[in-house]
Design a protein around this nucleic acid. Structure first.
Lengths: 181, 181
DNA sequence: CCCGAATGAGACTTTGATGTCTCATCCGGG
DNA sequence: CCCGGATGAGACATCAAAGTCTCATTCGGG
């Protein structure tokens, strides 16, 4: 049920409770029996998103191996929940309510990943971990939208996000690439 | 007046007409006299955003010089309207109404810039111009939000966006950098 | 100074969504 | 087969925001 709601809200963040109920194939009353109101529903979705993204962080084992590889794995693992993350990311902007505490822990883990990457010499020092964290979320969200609007093929999304985030648009010469790999 | 409305909606995309009017220092009635309704206001803002971003494209002279420099100039020029772009970018997602025709022309110009960069060998070929265009918008929006939440200093924003978009997070060796510059 | 247009304030209506309630129906366990 | 809990449908009340209207006031050009 939550899954259906998430899928719809991902596409249309302003869907009414009525639409959500229909999309989930249940009556509006039943929806209200499970979630006190729209706020409660969104909060439940937020919890779900936090849990899912936390699981993605675990599954990607971001503490292991080289930082760049860890980022790639994280993006791969987060891909299935990218749409929900996009929704929650903007939701947090729209309503300036204090962000759910759960995000802080996740943010800290991502933050730490980028910091570690800098320490290990894998990432540039002139971009702060805080910005890299934001950029990761932003690009995942942008990617999810681009897929929804069919501007990018779904299967390419994680690679596009990872390549841009890690390598940027600038082209490296063959010599540069050889040195890197 | 539009400017005040834009400033507020940039911060709180869900502000009511009442709040907007107060923020602009005018009465609700007057606001309605100028814009038939919220939709009309948003559409006017969209037109303004399109015009401003178009001017940024002009001012950056994106057709001239090397593509990477053009992208940097574009981001610099777009910085003052970054908040509004962030608002309009998400608004276009929220309400899946057919995107304003005006965007298409701007998209095409940005698209062409990235395509030219690829042709000239400045940009990678494995990231499509369409994706680079989306990523540019997404990163500008993410940057605007990060500044608003004080996660990134305002003066650093254009550099952070440009550096990440063009160079990515990955670090280049001194040798690599020397070859590039 | 005078007049007309525009404004601000606020009362009022309308609208769309939310939340509550009732009741007939359905379904699974005993 | 029967019963109790959960469901779907829909009526109803509530509420916030949107939109409309009036009227006194203000402002600027003539």
């Amino acid at each position: 049920m939550l899954r259906e709601a998430a899928a719809l809200l991902t596409r249309r963040a302003t869907a009414s409770m009525d639409e959500i109920a229909k999309a989930a194939g249940i009556g509006r009353a039943t929806l209200h029996r499970h979630f006190a109101g729209r706020d409660a529903l969104v909060r439940a979705l937020e919890d779900l998103g936090i849990r899912k993204f936390g699981e993605a962080l675990d599954a990607a084992r971001i503490e292991e191996g080289d930082a760049a590889g860890a980022v790639r794995r994280l993006i791969d693992e987060a891909e299935p929940v990218a749409g929900m993350l996009a929704f929650l990311f903007t939701e947090n902007q729209l309503y300036e309510n204090g962000a759910n505490e759960g995000w802080n822990r996740l943010d800290a883990r991502v933050h730490e990943l980028f910091r570690r990457g800098q320490e290990e010499g894998a990432f540039r020092l002139d971009l702060t971990p805080a910005w890299l964290t934001e950029a990761l979320y932003g690009l995942i969200g942008t990617g999810a939208w681009a897929v929804q609007d069919r501007r990018v093929a779904a299967k390419d999304m994680p690679r596009m996000v990872a390549e841009l985030l890690l390598g940027g648009a600038g082209r490296r010469t063959d010599a540069e690439r050889r040195m890197k790999r």
